[in-house]
Design a binder for these strands. Structure first.
Lengths: 218, 218
DNA sequence: ATATCGCTGGAACGTCGTTCCAGAAGCAAG
DNA sequence: CTTGCTTCTGGAACGACGTTCCAGCGATAT
């Protein structure tokens, strides 16, 4: 039995909590068993007693973060608003912990992702989609969310140490604006919107676009 | 000047080509400078003369694969079909080289991704989207594509060594089918479609869903 | 012939994930 | 209190990786 799970005793939860903190402020490369050992004032072997390996630790950290998303309850709104609420919950979690963007794809069978798909699916059902298209529509929403998550993760990776979001975005917009208008008319004209857009709003527009696709395919 | 770029001479192209081959049949972990050295019958230092580091090598490999996608020309079809053609080109490239799924997010400023966004953007423009929404609509399509790419990459990762796609899909469907119908009504009812769906068709349905959202928001 | 330059191959370094193990800390039985 | 057993700890050690370093090769220019 557990001898002492109190003060200084190591536990799976304490390890996962520390891992999340390290991931949050140092990115994926900052999570090291050595650094984790130091932070928890213990050795690598002690950590391996509670956690099988790094992959499992990352999965556990992802689950812990997603658990918060699932705590929200979008009671008696319209299905459309319910989907928006779930999606925004995901977005905010990803925004706060960008590293989960690289993890979300792999654990489709794990409980958290399944619960999220279930919730979205129920709302898609409530939107009146024919039975045989519900699965595809739900997957589309989920894939879009994963795509945005992945981009957020990549952006956060490019940001470690160096520049902030605004600076990075500005540099990108500058590149777009300096392109040959004959070859890149679209990127040129979109450079402005690219430079000062709100990620959250852009995300929501995407969700709405898919939702209205679902609405018209009803 | 290059002394001998012929038969056995090392070159950036030969390195990238070998890297793609190794990534294709061994996944991301199979690409090692040591294994690459062995395959090219040379040393690590020789490779580093042509390539700055692993990140650049991965980026170059991704660019090389995407270059093929950009070779296609969707001449005088409808904008809708043009988007479908571009998206399917991406899907097939991702399907053939699943590892690019983990790379696509990061290089938004690099030429290949920019060209793809440009092409999609032009078609979105042709669909009659109001100027101020074109950028968001294009991003939505691109994010969806990246999301599917990421999932493909994760699935391929889970597949190395072990089971094939059908086996993995079947296992997942079995899990869904065995869930508590009270708690997971949607996943239960979708287990069948999950078990025997066609990834490509599912992808195309997603694209169409977004396109019809774009059409109705016109 | 000699010096120079582009390029090569492999040794070496530091870091990582992971394994291994001696032993500390708690508990049960005598 | 002692003895044995189980649970858990800390740190040493291992193999593989990305990367750096450098002695030296062949071809060319002087």
């Amino acid at each position: 039995m557990a001898t002492r799970t109190g003060q200084d005793g190591l536990s799976r939860d304490r390890i996962v909590e520390a891992a999340i903190a390290m991931l949050d402020d140092g990115g994926e490369n900052a999570l090291t068993f050595r650094a984790l050992s130091t932070r928890l004032k213990t050795g690598a072997g002690a950590i391996y007693w509670h956690v099988a390996n790094k992959e499992e630790l990352l999965a556990a950290a992802t689950q812990a973060v997603l658990a918060d998303v699932l705590r929200g309850d979008e009671g008696d709104t319209t299905p459309r608003d319910a989907v928006r609420a779930i999606a925004l919950g995901m977005f905010d979690a990803i925004d706060h912990h960008p590293w989960i963007g690289g993890q979300l794809g792999g654990l489709a069978s794990r409980s958290a992702s399944m619960r999220i798909i279930e919730r979205i699916g129920q709302q898609v059902q409530a939107l009146g989609m024919p039975q045989e298209h519900q699965f595809f529509a739900t997957s589309t929403l989920f894939s879009f969310i994963l795509g945005v998550a992945g981009q957020n993760a990549a952006n956060a990776r490019a940001r470690v140490g160096g520049r902030g979001r605004a600076e990075l975005l500005g540099a990108e917009a500058a590149i777009w604006a300096s392109l040959d208008p004959a070859e890149f008319p679209f990127l040129r004209s979109a450079a402005g919107q690219m430079g000062d857009h709100d990620d959250r709003e852009q995300f929501l527009v995407g969700i709405d676009l898919i939702l209205s696709g679902i609405g018209s395919a009803r």
